[in-house]
Structure formats: structure tokens, C-alpha cells
Design a protein around this nucleic acid. Structure first.
Lengths: 251, 251
DNA sequence: GGAATAGTGTCTGTGAGACAGTATAGG
DNA sequence: CCTATACTGTCTCACAGACACTATTCC
């Protein structure tokens, strides 16, 4: 009686808006952080929320997500990982009207700083630890739910893909890469096990042969530590881990 | 300039429709099969397509999916597995207007037969093998793409979850459960490895103690085979496999 | 007995987990 | 020297893969 695709009359349905929301993760000072923007108008004025916006008539969700990402950050979007997470459709998730949101997850290397985008009121990085804390901010709409889903997606994807390398800027050391797992999972994988796994997985990382000019300078500018100079690597073409590298806590 | 959530005027955007599409899988005669319906009107009149329909104003995507499932099949939807797959948003995926579709995956135990739903023109099961074949039917809209994504989702989820048990009706034998893996993956896992894995995973299956009246009758009515009477099981509370059971071919 | 199916046992290789131990730098 | 970091080796245990083998039923 209803719901079939045949014979649809748009004017007989209340209007629906379709948006994208972005859960942009990065590693800052060894901690997993998420990009938030401050809402300038009702509803939820003054509250923190995920960056996002409407899908334009000529673009798909992925295109809208990349455009919003470019507007909100300095990320050109070509070298960052962006994937669809899920779509949130609760009828009352936006009090103004029916809004269906296609959420995406973005993994970005450590950024210098957020530049408030072309029209964002304010933007900042918030550590996931602070966000999950009871004292932390409650996000607008159902964005707390989206963040929880996005976090679980990132945590589990580190187990069976090479996505961790998307969090470090090239060239990077294995210690930096291991720090990514520590930040995302909360516990670091065993050093020996980790090195064995990364180095034995073909195409996870590729060694950098030319190290001139990069001595003593990590991707985030760390310099002058003691100890031997670590080998440097770049991201390899592999995407899957076979078998998976499981989280220590959930093992 | 555009795309921000603040200051949205619905009338300044072309109308958008939001639908759900269902990839309903089952095992029929030892083969993985997908539920298709025949379209009765343009566009793609006469072509096979995934069942689906519009999201009503008072329901979310999951609710719409369960309603459509009940309309199209005899499945009440309470005991079948239903999960969101992904959302398809290409601007021209429907030639009439902008239609965004939230695709879902359904795993159903072997059904007697499809009853064409309340308003479906025709419905049938199509084996995945036929569908992937070059000679097979080309589905309407971007449903071929959705089916490929759904199939990969099901195949990978059998690896690290107990979802295979959703394909068999209770009570079931371990041989029937193993046949599910064989049908979905194309190759059967090793018998010994499979039994060890299933029986050593707490809560994957629970033994049925009372076997009166069920002798010699499998879930699909198979009877009078030779050999010892197999033990019968029901689905257990566990959902995850730790560690995963990997596909033989992709191992 | 023979065929078909159900279920068990056993050997082997791979790889994770957990460390101990060695090497190279700065101070 | 001491300390911090980078890296390697080794031992053990869990488990997947690949089978061979026994047991039970129908004909």
C-alpha cells in the first residue's frame, strides 16, 4: 500500500534533507583526537558537533564529505583516508525537519593546526579520552552515537588493515607507527610482535633508502633524542593484514 | 558559502527521496540465493531489482527495512538478522529524481517459498552464482553494485562472527552449518578444523538434549540418510569468533 | 558386507605473546 | 660512565591445516 518505489509523488511526502557528517581522527601529542566545530545557531547553538553539511545536487556523499573536509581543514582530501561509516535516520534526530545523515570517517596525519574553515564559527581538536569522559562535552544531535561507532570502526580496522599508517606523516619510524596503535587502542602492542608483523607483511611499509636531511627529525619535528637513528619508512601498497593483529585488551 | 547546516531552506533544494533496499540472502538447495522482485513500471520496467521502498515519516531506516521485508516475504523480521550495509548516493542513480538509498543485508533461514508480498508484482530467489554469471540478469538501478558489496559483507562476516547460524533453521547439525560456509564461500572449511572451531567457541552453538521426534529429519526435511544420527544444536548467544575462521581460498 | 555419513585423533607448521639480550646514540 | 632508544633472538603455547582413522546407520 505504501513504500513501493512505483508511483512516487514527492509533494505527498514531507521534505527530507540529506547531509554528511565527518568524524575526523588524528594523533596529537600521542593521543587520539577528533575534530569538532562549534555550532553558531539553533538548535544546539554553542554546542560542539561534528563538521558536516548538505549534499549538493551534483555530488554524491563522498564528494560532499571531501568538500566539507576541505572547507573545515587544510586537508586537500586526496591523500587522506575517507570512508563511509553508516547512515543515521532516526526521525527526530534533528528537531527542525527530517534530516538523514551519511556519516564518514576520516584518518588524517598529524596536522599543524586547524584553520577554522571558510565559514566555521570555531573548530578544535578534542582528545577521544576527554570526549568519552563524563566531564567531557555532550555533542549536538546524535553525534555522540556517531563518534562511538566511528571510534569502534577505527579501532577494529587497525586490526585487519594497514590503516594505522594513514595517521603518520612520511617518512615515519616503526616506533611512531606503534604509537598510533597505542593511541587508538589504549594499549601498545608488544614491541617484538609488532615489528615482526609489520616487517613480515609485504607492502605494509617500504624502507626509505635516502636518509639525508632527515636525520634526527621525526614527522612531528621531534629531534635530538638519544639512541641509534631509527630506520625510516613510507606507506606501502598493502591494505589488508593477514592474519589480523588483535588488540591486546580484547584478545 | 553552501553546505553548512545553519540556515537551511528546503524549498531552495530540489526534492530528495530516501529509500531502503534489501539484499536478502538465504541458502537454497546448498546454494546461496538472493531475493529479487520484478519491477512493474518505469524506469527499468520488467527488470529484476532488490526489494525496497520509501522510508515513511515516522520510521527510521531499520524500521522501513523490517516493514518492507514483512511485505515481501513471510519473515516476521524478529528472528532474522538485518543490518545496515551502506548508503548509495550517486546523483543519477535514479533517472526520475534524486534518490538516496540505505541498503541493508538480511540473512534468512531456508524459506519454504517466497510469497509475493502485498504489492510485489513477482518475486523469486536467484542463486548468487547465476547472478554473478555473465549470462545472469542485470539488475535495475545500481543494484548490481549493492549486491556485490552485500555479498562481500556476508562472506567476510562469516569469518569473524557467528552469523552463519542465521542461515539454518533450528535445530541444525554441524554438517548443515558447515554447508552454509561452503555455499557462501564457495569452498568448505576443513571438517576437523571446522568442528574444533565451532565446538570450542563458547556460545556459538548449544547442544539440543531432547531429540525425540526430530530423528532423521533435518531442518530442510531431509530424512532417511544412512550413517549415525548427528547431534543437533541451536544458535548460542555468542556473536564474535576469536580468532577468526578464515576462508580457505583467500588464506 | 558395502556405502554413506558422523565424529575423533594426531602430526606439523605458523605465528602470537612474552621477554631477555645486544647495539647505538646523547649527556 | 649512565640512560634512553632501536633492534634482534628465543622460548613457549595456541591453533589452523591436513589428514587418517573409527563408529554408526541404511541398504
Amino acid at each position: 500500500v505504501t513504500g513501493r518505489r512505483e508511483g512516487y509523488d514527492p509533494s505527498s511526502y514531507p521534505p527530507v534533507a540529506v547531509t554528511v557528517d565527518l568524524a575526523v581522527f588524528t594523533i596529537r601529542d600521542g593521543a587520539l583526537a577528533l575534530l569538532l566545530v562549534e555550532r553558531g545557531s539553533e538548535p544546539f547553538a554553542g554546542r560542539w558537533a561534528l563538521p558536516g553539511g548538505f549534499i549538493e545536487p551534483d555530488e554524491d556523499a563522498q564528494g560532499a564529505a571531501r568538500r566539507e573536509l576541505a572547507e573545515e581543514t587544510a586537508l586537500t582530501g586526496l591523500d587522506v583516508h575517507l570512508e563511509q561509516l553508516a547512515t543515521y535516520t532516526a526521525p527526530d534526530r534533528d528537531p527542525r525537519m527530517r534530516v538523514v545523515s551519511v556519516a564518514h570517517v576520516v584518518l588524517a596525519p598529524n596536522l599543524a593546526e586547524v584553520r577554522g574553515g571558510s565559514d566555521a564559527a570555531a573548530a578544535r581538536w578534542c582528545t577521544v579520552e576527554d570526549l568519552l569522559d563524563e566531564e567531557g562535552p555532550d555533542l549536538a544531535f546524535d553525534h555522540d552515537l556517531i563518534v562511538r561507532d566511528a571510534l569502534e570502526r577505527v579501532r577494529s580496522k587497525l586490526e585487519y588493515t594497514t590503516l594505522a599508517a594513514q595517521f603518520v606523516s612520511e617518512p615515519f619510524t616503526l616506533a611512531e607507527l606503534r604509537a598510533v596503535y597505542a593511541a587508538v587502542w589504549g594499549t601498545a602492542p608488544d614491541l617484538g610482535t609488532f615489528r615482526r608483523k609489520v616487517l613480515s607483511t609485504d607492502g605494509f611499509v617500504v624502507p626509505v633508502t635516502d636518509r639525508t636531511g632527515t636525520d634526527r627529525v621525526g614527522g612531528d619535528g621531534t629531534a635530538s633524542r638519544s639512541g641509534p637513528r631509527p630506520l625510516l619508512f613510507r606507506r606501502g601498497p598493502a591494505t589488508a593484514l593477514q592474519p589480523a593483529m588483535l588488540r591486546p585488551s580484547t584478545g
